[in-house]
Design a protein around this nucleic acid. Sequence first.
DNA 1: CACCCTTTCTGGAACGAGTCAAGAAAACCC
DNA 2: GGGTTTTCTTGACTCGTTCCAGAAAGGGTG
Lengths: 160, 160
Amino acid sequence: MHPTTPLAAAAPRADPADTLREHGLRVTRQRLAVLAALETGPHSGADAVLERVRSELGQVSTQAVYDVLHTLAERGLVRRIQPAGSSARYELRVGDNHHHLVCRGCGRVVDVDCDTRRAPCLDPGDLDRHAPGFVVDEAEVTFWGLCEACSIPSTSPTLP
Amino acid sequence: MHPTTPLAAAAPRADPADTLREHGLRVTRQRLAVLAALETGPHSGADAVLERVRSELGQVSTQAVYDVLHTLAERGLVRRIQPAGSSARYELRVGDNHHHLVCRGCGRVVDVDCDTRRAPCLDPGDLDRHAPGFVVDEAEVTFWGLCEACSIPSTSPTLP
DNA sequence: CACCCTTTCTGGAACGAGTCAAGAAAACCC
DNA sequence: GGGTTTTCTTGACTCGTTCCAGAAAGGGTG
């Protein structure tokens, strides 16, 4: 579907196979295909990934894709997000604590860089009063709204 | 489980029946029971609400509770949150843009006041570059971590 | 390179949360 | 009280995901 040359992204990701090995994972066609699928379509759900993987490899079980996504997420190779009301979505951008913008209309997800370099709002205020002893390790921010297409009332009625 | 006197919360909520009417909703036993259930157990899921409602009213259909929760959320009487990996949860605290702290161990949810009075991080940085035309109406912040009980390794192994 | 052990994938059943649809029952207005 | 409209009941059903057992690759070793 796309040329085989590396995509436009500035950083030419290291060889996916190596990345897998570095994380102590065996290199399989399915895993490579899942990684490729997420490269062409960030924020894809399992269904979309499965579709792309199948179009590349032929028959692949649903479970394989779920397994792969699980494992990759577990090892920190992909990040899993799950905006309310949506099924799980996955992306390769990990490590930086970036956030997401979700369109209430079409469900599209867009990355948002963390404005202040450090995780924003990572300090939940007077935490100790409400939840003493609670140790926070992540602050997840989701912005909700309408994307340009979906906010035009007459032209393109947002399809749920 | 709790005394029948109004809970500690400073503001003695207006009569729930009135609240329903004010929002253009009919007053039904089921709706009152759902509101009561959420008062005693904030951040409850549909299952927990159903349980409490049944213990108060006897037989009530699952669907009724789903309908009620839907309607109440739609009219802004309750707020629906859905931390990743969890089923939907509901709370009566609406209007203020407060946030949530979720324990990865036991799933418990705790409210966190918005530190800065205005919604934190409500400005998604250089939005226009990444998603021109996108109109943000809400910034949802979820803090993840471990509550006191779950972070004690030996004593109480976190039950998923 | 062949072998063996482990990890991973396949196939199919199963599950939980939530939804849909049609009719019965309750609210509200007069 | 009667009529309308909203709401609840019942039961089937979808969707995303998980569980399981067995077959099929990976890949370290001799």
